[in-house]
Design a protein around this nucleic acid. Structure first.
Lengths: 235, 235
DNA sequence: AGTTTTTAAATGGTACTACCATTTAAAAGA
DNA sequence: TCTTTTAAATGGTAGTACCATTTAAAAACT
């Protein structure tokens, strides 16, 4: 079989193996969905033992670059680079640093304001009305007593993602996703008591409406209100 | 020796080992600087082969939770959680997604504006005047023909970090550091030609002055100007 | 006694072999 | 043709042996 890799450096073997594999992924020689050679084949291509190959694959998996399947037709498959590992690291970072809730709220609020502004100026009419419909449905459900926390949390999350997508800039989407994984716990608190649950859902509805109306000032007011609620709720 | 770990789950061994080790780090049973038992000792504590232990340690190293040293007194030492792996993942993400420069600029501009606003309202007098002094010195040096690109880049980077610290919120600092690692290249472009180099340094000086004067509106103007220069420069 | 050199122990780095578990696809059987 | 069985490919795990590096203790030398 044709070898796509070179013999690995004798010191820092694992790093070298990782870099070579990363390279073929990044420069497009292997695309998402493609399969790397089997461990035993890589063993011969890199001229290194299987243990080192496995260590390298673990690192790439941790970086979320590959996915490993068992059995025949198994092996390391190239993934679409996602954000899970970043989010993972971030939540680790936040846990260890023990960051205060009000700092998180401050950050998220400013992020939301920026994203909202962008969403209003860049989002399409259709996106805006879709967002509004989703927020309205959410509000209605909550008003009618729907209270499954998992579903509520998931919907809240999806609304945030939808909004971030409207900003038409993947970097904002990245931060939102990273942050969201780190603090779903806080938002869940907001949906614990009925009082906050309804107020928050109504607030989402109001925000989405103002985004549809393309009124950034009012939208920002509702966003502030959202985080006031959250602050109040956390006491 | 007293065992701090339990026998690992027989399926998903590596993940289980990782989780157990992460746990003792996160709940403080082991602090930065402490050493994990040797691979051979972990082998017996987890009741698994050495290969699996090594795979788990690789993952933790990739997460930047531990540092591995060779020789006697070697082993896995707990690290202070940093941002290197996050920045790493981010630049990987950006490379693969091939994000357009103007999206990056848009993101950074809005980030800078927010940070500046916060810096003005939260930063101490002393921090503000320090920032100004640093920006002034930077401007003077560049005017007088100092042109070492490495030093210039480093100074620009430090100014950004200083500003981010004034915002008194570690999350902003995190994003700035992560972004900076990903795109130092763009900023370097700005300091290539003398025309842009001087204009940019002057702009930094103006921005810092307005921050010291606590005038967010003017400061924002200069920030916009900075990114206009960058856009212009990239053509 | 003090300094340098040598040695030994601890530990991570690597290779190799053997076998198990899972998955897929081909072969055999109904 | 459909179902069952079998075999091959591949990742998962264990274990052993040996190398390379680092540290600290022991020995040798002034």
């Amino acid at each position: 079989m044709e070898s796509i890799f070179e013999k690995a450096d004798s010191v820092r073997s694992v790093e070298d193996i990782c870099l070579q594999i990363e390279a073929v992924i990044l420069d497009g020689r292997l695309k998402p969905g493609d399969k790397l050679p089997s461990e035993r084949e890589l063993q011969t291509q890199f001229g290194r033992g299987r243990g080192l190959i496995r260590e390298a694959l673990r690192m790439l998996k941790q970086k979320d670059l590959i996915e490993i399947r068992k059995g025949a037709k198994g092996g390391a498959y190239i993934k679409n680079v996602g954000l899970s590992n970043i989010s993972d690291s971030l939540s680790l970072f936040l846990k260890q640093k023990d960051i205060e809730p009000d700092k998180i709220i401050e950050f998220r609020e400013s992020l939301d304001r920026t994203i909202t502004t962008l969403a209003i100026s860049k989002g399409s009419r259709e996106q805006k009305s879709d967002l509004y419909k989703e927020a309205l449905a959410f509000y209605e459900k909550i008003k009618n007593g729907m209270a499954d926390k998992n579903i509520i949390g998931e919907t809240d999350r999806r609304l945030n993602i939808t909004l971030a997508k409207m900003a038409a800039n993947p970097l904002f989407l990245w931060v939102v996703e990273a942050i969201q994984q780190g603090f779903s716990s806080y938002d869940y608190a907001l949906y614990e008591e009925e009082k906050f649950r309804i107020a928050t859902a109504k607030n989402w509805h109001d925000t989405a409406r103002e985004i549809m109306n393309e009124d950034p000032v009012k939208a920002h007011l509702y966003i502030s209100n959202h985080y006031c609620l959250l602050m109040e709720c956390l006491d």
